[in-house]
């Protein structure tokens, strides 16, 4: 049992890490083929787990409806849409030709069918609405942060004002220095900090990968 819980996952992680690193340094087409093959395997695994994901989602919402938990109506709506979209995809009815092509026929984004209609008329506007909320959320978050209660907050407020002003054409008419200062803030202090963070991310990634590769980090196996 310890073999399956401990030795096998560590050996697999180590072997795949070595193969992955090797493929960076071996440009041979065998190496290319290996990389392409692993991508396919990853997709296959993803495809299998998609069913598990869908099962998990449906199970969670089924239990909510059964127990009539708070907000169970949303779960019912999810079921309604799930069934509708699946049905549209199976029927695969193309309104342009007036024919039903069935579930095995390929469909694409240009086809005038139910799935595309739901996507274009419901999902896309809903996503755009959700995205547009960001504008308001940025305002409320900025209001909380930019209150100049401390020296740091005051510096942040001034820097933010300069950068924001520098992004609009009006700033150049006020003073040519504003766009210049905005660009300076973005290109120098901001870029320096970004690179420092990126630098830490890269070293941290290498460290974490090594810990996983050599079995030092085993939390992902349940911390054995």
């Amino acid at each position: 049992m310890r073999f399956f819980k401990f030795y096998l996952p560590i050996s697999l992680a180590f072997a795949m890490a070595i193969l992955g690193i090797t493929s960076v340094f071996v440009p041979h087409h065998y190496s290319d083929n290996f990389q392409k093959e692993t991508v396919v395997w990853f997709r296959v695994l993803g495809g299998v787990t998609m069913f598990i994901g869908a099962y998990s989602l449906l199970k969670v919402h089924f239990n909510r409806i059964r127990r009539q938990q708070k907000g169970w109506g949303y779960s019912a709506l999810l079921y309604a849409f799930f069934i509708t979209v699946i049905t549209c995809a199976i029927v695969n009815y193309d309104t342009a030709t007036g024919k039903s092509k069935g579930p095995l026929e390929a469909r694409n984004m240009a086809t005038k069918d139910g799935v595309n209609w739901i996507f274009n008329a419901i999902q896309r506007p809903a996503s755009a609405t959700q995205y547009s909320l960001l504008g308001f959320f940025i305002c409320s978050a900025a209001y909380r942060t930019f209150r100049a209660k401390t020296v740091e907050a005051a510096v942040l407020l001034v820097a933010a004002l300069i950068v924001m002003l520098g992004q609009v054409p009006l700033s150049a008419t006020i003073s040519g220095a504003i766009p210049w200062m905005s660009n300076w803030l973005l290109n120098w202090p901001n870029m320096a900090v970004k690179r420092a963070i990126l630098f830490g991310i890269c070293v941290g990634s290498v460290g974490t990968s090594l810990r996983v590769m050599f079995g030092i980090e085993r939390s992902y196996m349940g911390g054995d």
């Binding site: 994901g53 869908a54 998990s56 989602l57 907000g71 949303y74 959700q130």
Partner: peptide, 22 residues
């Protein structure tokens, strides 16, 4: 409980809407 660790959706905005609602 299996139901406490669950897949919400693969779309980020639908995800944020669902999780925000919860």
């Amino acid at each position: 409980n299996d139901d406490d660790v669950f897949f919400v959706t693969g779309d980020t905005f639908a995800y944020s809407a669902a999780v925000s609602g919860m």
